[in-house]
Amino acid sequence: TEVDLHLGDITIKLKDVSEEIVKRAKELFKNGWSAEFVKKWIEEAVK
């Protein structure tokens, strides 16, 4: 499945990412993480 994760003005296309990771990524962004950091976190999380 593909998900578009909207973080501010940046959209990250996610492939084969669990709902849990998407939820967590949104929380991290809301908590002040930059979109770049969230993207890196996701990449690490799906390895």
Score class of each variant (00 low, 15 high):
I12G: 03
K47E: 09
A25F: 03
K15W: 14
G8T: 03
I21M: 08
L28S: 01
K47L: 13
I12K: 02
L14K: 01
W33Q: 08
A35Y: 09
K40P: 00
E44H: 13
I21P: 00
K47A: 14
W33P: 00
I10K: 05
D16R: 06
A35I: 14
E27T: 08
K26H: 12
D9P: 10
E19N: 09
A45T: 12
V22Y: 14
W33I: 05
T1Y: 12
K26V: 15
K40M: 11
G32K: 02
V46A: 06
V3Y: 12
W41Y: 07
E44K: 08
L14I: 09
I21K: 01
H6R: 11
V22D: 00
K23S: 12
K23T: 15
K40D: 07
E19I: 08
D16A: 07
V46L: 15
I12F: 04
K39E: 06
L14H: 02
I10E: 10
L28W: 05
K23W: 13
G32Y: 02
K47F: 07
H6V: 15
G32R: 02
E43K: 08
F37W: 15
K30Q: 14
E27K: 08
W41D: 00
I42W: 01
F29L: 06
T1A: 10
L7G: 01
V3G: 07
A45F: 09
V38G: 00
L14C: 06
V46G: 05
L5E: 03
W41N: 00
L14Y: 05
F37V: 08
K30N: 14
E20A: 13
V17D: 01
K26I: 15
V17L: 06
E19F: 10
I10D: 05
V38D: 00
I12S: 03
T1W: 14
T1R: 12
E43W: 13
E19C: 07
F29S: 02
L14M: 05
F29Y: 14
E19Q: 09
V38L: 04
S18H: 09
N31S: 13
N31K: 12
E20H: 11
E19P: 13
A25R: 00
S34L: 05
S34F: 05
T11A: 06
L28C: 03
F29M: 05
F37D: 11
E27A: 10
L5H: 02
T11V: 15
T11I: 14
L14Q: 01
V22F: 13
L28F: 07
K23D: 12
S18M: 06
V22A: 06
E27F: 12
S18V: 05
N31A: 14
K47Y: 07
I21W: 04
R24G: 08
T1M: 14
F37Y: 15
V3F: 14
S18N: 12
V46C: 07
E44A: 09
V17E: 01
S18E: 06
I21V: 07
G8R: 03
S18I: 07
I21C: 04
A35P: 05
E43N: 08
V46Y: 06
K26G: 06
I42K: 00
V46E: 04
F29C: 02
R24D: 04
K26A: 13
G8W: 04
K30W: 06
L28Q: 01
E20N: 09
V17C: 05
F29N: 01
L5G: 02
A35K: 04
W33D: 03
W41A: 01
E43I: 15
F37Q: 14
I10P: 02
L14W: 05
I42D: 00
V3N: 07
R24S: 06
I10Y: 11
L7K: 01
E36L: 09
A25I: 04
G8M: 04
T1H: 13
K23Y: 15
V46S: 09
E20Y: 13
V3A: 10
F29K: 01
L28H: 04
I12A: 03
K47V: 11
D4S: 12
I42A: 03
S34D: 08
S34W: 04
V22C: 04
D4E: 15
F37E: 12
V17S: 02
D16N: 13
N31Y: 11
V46D: 03
E19L: 11
R24F: 15
S18G: 09
A45S: 07
E20T: 10
A35D: 02
K13T: 13
E27C: 13
D16M: 06
H6S: 08
E43M: 15
L5Q: 02
E19H: 10
D9W: 04
L5R: 02
K39Q: 12
T11N: 05
S34A: 08
G32V: 01
D9A: 11
T11W: 05
V38F: 02
A25V: 03
I42P: 00
G8H: 04
K47N: 11
E19R: 08
G32Q: 01
K15H: 13
N31P: 00
D9S: 10
E43Q: 11
G8P: 02
T1N: 14
V3E: 10
V17T: 04
E20Q: 09
S34N: 07
A45N: 09
K30R: 15
G8F: 03
L7Q: 01
K13E: 05
G32M: 02
V46I: 15
E19Y: 10
H6K: 13
D9I: 10
I10V: 12
W33A: 13
V46F: 06
H6T: 14
K13V: 12
V38T: 03
L28D: 00
L14T: 03
E43C: 10
T1S: 12
L7N: 02
I21H: 03
K30L: 14
A35E: 04
V38A: 01
K13Q: 09
K23V: 12
A45C: 12
T1C: 10
L7E: 02
V17H: 03
V17R: 01
S18R: 06
G8L: 04
I10G: 03
K15A: 07
K15Y: 15
I42E: 00
I42V: 09
D9E: 11
K26Y: 15
E2P: 07
K40R: 13
D9H: 14
T1D: 13
F37N: 11
I42N: 00
S34E: 04
R24I: 08
S34Y: 03
K40T: 11
I42L: 10
K15P: 05
I12Y: 03
V46W: 07
G32N: 03
L28T: 00
E27I: 11
L14G: 03
V3T: 10
D4G: 05
N31R: 13
A45W: 11
E2A: 09
E2M: 13
V38Y: 01
F29A: 02
K40I: 12
K39M: 15
W41T: 00
L28M: 13
D16Y: 09
K47H: 11
L7W: 06
